[in-house]
Amino acid sequence: MPANTYLIERERRVLESARVGIAGAGGLGSNAAMLLVRAGMKNLTIADFDRVNESNINRQFFFRRQIGRKKIDALAENLRMIEPDVNLEMLDMRLTPANAVKAFSRCSIVIEALDSADAKKMLIDALLPSGRPLVSAAGLAGWGRSNDIRVRRVGRNLILVGDQTRDVRGGLAPVGVRVCIAAAMEANCAVSLLLGEEL
């Protein structure tokens, strides 16, 4: 039985055969991964170098008993609780301009789910030339202002989620209520692209 029992046959085949990459397993990446597996995806490539920290529990798809563990290991465990058959390629690495393209070479879509603005920009610059869709998020800190978070198509293959304004450097905390909106929108964009639907 697939994780998403509402899919018609064509949708199930598309989602089960595609591979989506997720750069980062924090607030955006862990929740986007959770939603993609619940949507019916079976193949994910997820890259992260960090460990679960107490400050992550407010928004990331981890649990208190997982504090201190590698995020890629804890996330794999959690995703397999949703769908035991999921085919995960978990990469224990810090993404750089030199390794990002190869890391996601098997993926038809990549979701940018990094933290710092520099890292986000680095990944965009590194992956855009591939021509494959890149879904990125910026402007998701704090709470409220749900309607300011939107999806924009930029250039040929960049999809930007967020309000492009409210960042964590301005004293706003990263909080689950708003980070998860952006994570869900990123996952929704990936599913829509795969199924040929409007974003």
Binding site: G24, G26, G27, L28, G29, A113, L114, D115, S116, A117, K120, K121, I124, S136, A137, A138, G139, L140, A141, R152, V154, L160, G162, Q164, T165, R166, D167, V168, R169, L172, P174, V179
Partner: peptide, 10 residues
């Protein structure tokens, strides 16, 4: 011309 600010948070 369009410019989109990439801000931190994730």
């Amino acid at each position: 011309v369009n410019a989109f600010h990439i801000v931190a948070g994730g």
